[in-house]
Amino acid sequence: MENDKLKRIIADVLSEVMSSRQAGNGHASAAVFRNNLNAACDDGEVPDLSAVDFSQILATPEPANGEAYLEIKRTSTARVGTWRAGPRYRTETYLRLRADHAKAMDAVFEDVPEELIDKLRLLKVTTRCASKNDYLTRPDLGRQFDEETSRLIKDKCIPEADVQLIVSDGLSSTAVSHNIADVFPAIVQGLELKRIKLGTPIFVKYGRVGCMDAITELVKSKVTVILLGERPGLATSESLSAYMTYGGFVGINEAARTVVSNIYKGGTNPVEAGAHIADLIERMLREKKSGIDLSR
């Protein structure tokens, strides 16, 4: 009895499959297929996944209290309420994670555009790192210059200036490209208004924070400021920091640096940061100190 029943079910299923296959071979379905193919090749665009604000979207299909949960979700970029496919991410969640990570990685591995450096008339130099890979694995080389570069810096830069400005790619070129055109002129204007003597600004490729100390020793500036890209997170790759010293030297204590961090449109506004940095420089020159000593 059981066997007969099973056989009947299998026969039914098979006949259904066969009949649907035959229908699929007809001319009508070939036309549908061609139409679909045309639709796939039209000029339309797949929507930009990186433009979606997921903090406003709760993907849970039947939430127990969606409204209340979404209200909390809106207050941060935490990837909650994304729901699941089995125990895994939904496709959109997975691809957006990959997209955000891609943006962060590109920020590290891309270079700052040459035009931007030229536009700001920065003297271009490179640390002892020969490649991005050197830069990432040899923090010591990212703080040093070879003899030829040291001589170039000495020859081309105004010595003993009140302020030496430096821009460097750091861990995020994106941070430099997004903010420097706003923050750099704001600092320069601020200093001009205060009649503070500015040295020859430098762009350092593959620079760590400590390269500012080597430059200070070469040009003998009083205050030295380096603007460089921070380690990128998935939420933003645009964050820039400014490190400042008074009377810097190679081996200076980290606590002697004054820091303004989180400079980007979602953090400290770049133009305002520029003005703030100019004020800090004025104070450092007046009080002849920086870092923890300055805060006291």
Partner: peptide, 23 residues
């Protein structure tokens, strides 16, 4: 949540990974 630690800026295992590993 979603592998992304929005405070420490690094990526670690997610709630989804946890559930999957048990299975």
């Amino acid at each position: 949540p979603g592998s992304d630690d929005i405070m420490l800026s690094y990526q670690d295992t997610s709630y989804h990974d946890d559930a999957t590993l048990r299975e």
